[in-house]
């Protein structure tokens, strides 16, 4: 059984003349314990797939199933105990007037846990934050520490699948390394499945075993990370993306024009 099965997914926004087809006929699978990276430029629909999965994009057709359970129009509580999401900007995804303690205890209460005290301590320890962080507010934390809190919040209901929407693109490279290492460790410890969206091929290549390249709402190519490293790709857009992220040479750029 796969962690995520999506077939013929279409997602659109607006209606009539203003309709935008953000995702078109996308089919993908994420094996249990596996990790899939979605790459592509802004507007290619990669984040929209995550939003459709979590029920944040209401207009969709197609089939989506999570651990064998087909998803309907509404998400159940058990869905959110299986799937959790970490967002891009840790400066925007935490409530500015809630302390870390409030953020985590609210999540735990909503998921019906009773032993909130020990769980908060454990969650903070798991993401590498000491107990002294518990009663701080987001503005008292650095970007990397905030993202650790966001990860702790996602781990609170003990999910099997984490959806990561550009989790490090708002962070410095040195902090990015810490967060990526944390995500790698957590995945190994808890046997999680990851679906990660990023525009940075090096980050996706580091984190994921399989990579899907998106352009204009469609998946143009899916490949293993080894294929990507060896430049074994067929679609011209994937090649273009890879060469762009391999570092630019000024001569290449000029010939590009």
């Amino acid at each position: 059984m796969n962690a995520i099965d999506i077939s013929d997914l279409n997602v659109w926004f607006g209606k009539g003349r203003d309709r935008v087809d953000a995702v078109r006929n996308v089919s993908l699978t994420l094996a249990q314990g596996g990790s899939l990276g979605l790459v592509g430029e802004s507007g290619s629909g990669k984040s929209t797939i995550l939003r459709a999965l979590t029920g944040l994009a209401p207009n969709w057709t197609g089939q989506m199933a999570v651990v064998g359970e087909t998803l309907g129009r509404r998400r159940t509580r058990s869905f959110y105990q299986t799937v959790q999401m970490v967002f891009q900007d840790p400066y925007a995804s935490l409530h500015p007037r809630h302390s870390i303690d409030q953020v985590l205890s609210e999540t735990l209460t909503l998921h019906g846990y009773r032993d909130i005290e020990p769980r908060i301590e454990k969650l903070l320890a798991d993401v590498g934050l000491g107990p002294s962080f518990r009663f701080r507010y987001p503005h008292q934390l650095s970007g990397g520490q905030r993202q650790r809190v966001a990860i702790a919040r996602a781990l609170a209901p003990e999910p099997a699948i984490l959806l990561l929407d550009e989790p490090t693109s708002a962070l410095d490279v040195s902090v990015q390394a810490e967060i990526l290492n944390l995500l790698t460790d957590i995945r190994a410890e808890r046997n999680l499945s990851y679906m990660m969206v990023s525009h940075d091929l090096a980050v996706v290549g580091h984190m994921c075993e399989r990579i899907a390249v998106m352009q204009n709402g469609e998946i143009v190519e899916t490949m293993s990370v080894d294929d990507m490293r060896a430049m074994r790709m067929t679609h011209p857009y994937s090649k273009h993306l890879l060469s762009a992220s391999m570092g630019v040479q000024t001569d290449d750029i000029l010939s590009d024009l």
Binding site: V173, S174, Q176, A177, E178, L180, N181, T184, L201, A202, V203, G205, H206, V225, M228, R229, L242, S245, M246
Partner: peptide, 20 residues
């Protein structure tokens, strides 16, 4: 050196990234 080593690299895969 620390900054350079903390970057994930496509041509040199590494299970853990170096932390500055």
């Amino acid at each position: 050196r620390g900054l350079l080593n903390s970057l994930p690299r496509l041509d040199a895969p590494n299970r853990r990234l170096e932390v500055l």
